[in-house]
């Protein structure tokens, strides 16, 4: 079952506008809140049945959906939950993929619009001294897509016990001798803390490092999930469940609690950790969709990903470096430094 949200006023496909926080029809300008749209959604939902094609062997071709607006085949894979028709540009939310466990609990809606994201990207490229000139052309930013990436947000109760040997050093002068007193201490610390909503991206396609660097998100805008938020964006369901992603998050939480408890040992000259152990208790995992603007491109036969946090605008990724520009700078700085050094040597040496 495909959901294409349509404008109440004119019937055109209507999309979520991040800057306004509601759905806006780009043809007639009609505004609708997400809640309104969800409640009235049924009325505008076309009644075409799930187009899943079943062959004689009863194998399900999950990729077969038809666009509600133009009838073209929607190209999706089995994780896609929201997409845009490549023929008519209508948004399509695949409702059938939001059931039970695959239903997100929370969502942070996009607050950065596509235009704003393009602007950010252009500024970013302009800053890069070594960025090849082609990236500074505005057209490059056009293939940017907005994706709601599936995350698990975990709550953990954590504790850490640290045994340490610490010293305080005092110096004293007695005639021609310097006397060093070292006081030795046995130090024990035990601390507990709760860590809330620690994110881990649950999508197989998204590189973990890039997603980690997009943090932090501002959780004050964490909303209950409603499908109309997805209108106009891509989205997919998680590839890994909360148990599969837990070890990654636990490693982070362990290092956090250790660091915090370790930092409570203060006032010593040296601290040597003799032993430590951490305790973790998972309290809950919240399936959440987080907004990301992404550009993927090939440069000199290498794939690169640039991502922008769809809520805060933080930019992640490595801009490609132009070998020519690097050489130019290297040569220029080398020649300049060499000349200055020789002059200094000649006059001051």
């Amino acid at each position: 079952m495909i959901e294409t949200y349509k404008c109440k006023g004119c019937g055109a496909p209507i999309e979520f506008d991040g800057s306004k926080g509601e759905l806006v029809c780009e043809y007639c300008g009609t505004h609708m809140s997400v809640k309104e749209m969800e409640q009235s959604g049924e009325k505008y939902d076309s009644q075409v049945e799930d187009e899943t094609v079943q062959d004689d062997n009863n194998k399900t071709d999950v990729n077969g959906y038809k666009c509600q607006s133009c009838g073209a085949e929607l190209i999706t894979d089995d994780k896609t939950t929201a997409t845009v028709c490549s023929f008519c540009g209508s948004s399509a939310v695949i409702k059938g993929r939001f059931t039970g466990e695959t239903m997100p609990a929370k969502i942070i809606p996009f607050s950065i619009t596509k235009d704003k994201a393009k602007d950010l990207f252009r500024q970013w490229c302009r800053k890069g001294i070594l960025t090849p000139s082609m990236f500074k052309k505005s057209a490059f930013a056009d293939n940017m897509t907005g994706i709601y990436v599936p995350f698990w947000l975990y709550d953990y109760g954590a504790g850490c016990h640290i045994d340490a040997h610490a010293t305080k050093v005092r110096h004293q002068r007695q005639g021609d001798y310097e006397i060093t007193h070292t006081d030795h201490f046995k130090v024990v610390r035990d601390g507990e803390a709760d860590f809330t909503l620690v994110p881990a991206d649950a999508s197989e396609k998204m590189p973990d490092e890039t997603m980690d660097l997009l943090e932090p998100y501002n959780y004050s805008n964490l909303q209950d999930f409603k499908m109309p938020y997805l209108s106009g964006f891509l989205s997919e369901k998680y590839s890994y469940d909360s148990n599969q992603m837990a070890p990654r998050v636990e490693q982070r939480v362990r290092s956090y609690i250790f660091r915090e408890v370790r930092n409570s040992i203060t006032g010593y000259s040296t601290v040597n950790i003799v032993g430590s152990n951490t305790r973790l208790k998972r309290k809950r995992a919240v399936y959440t969709l987080l907004p990301v603007w992404m550009i993927t491109y090939r440069y000199k036969n290498e794939n690169h990903i640039l991502a922008i946090n769809g809520q805060t605008g933080k930019q992640v990724g490595t801009l490609p470096k132009s070998k020519e520009k690097m050489l130019g700078w290297f040569g220029g700085i080398f020649a300049g430094t060499f000349a200055i050094l020789m002059i200094l040597g000649g006059f001051l040496g």
């Binding site: 007193h181 030795h184 507990e192 803390a193 860590f195 915090e260």
Partner: peptide, 28 residues
């Protein structure tokens, strides 16, 4: 380590700073 820390601080349970001994060195 404090980004996701509830309340921004940890609760310290045991906190022991036990003095054991002093070592001394002299240097001319």
């Amino acid at each position: 380590s404090t980004t996701y820390l509830e309340g921004g601080r940890i609760k310290l349970g045991a906190r022991i700073d036990h003095f054991t001994h002093t070592t001394t060195t002299r240097r001319k």
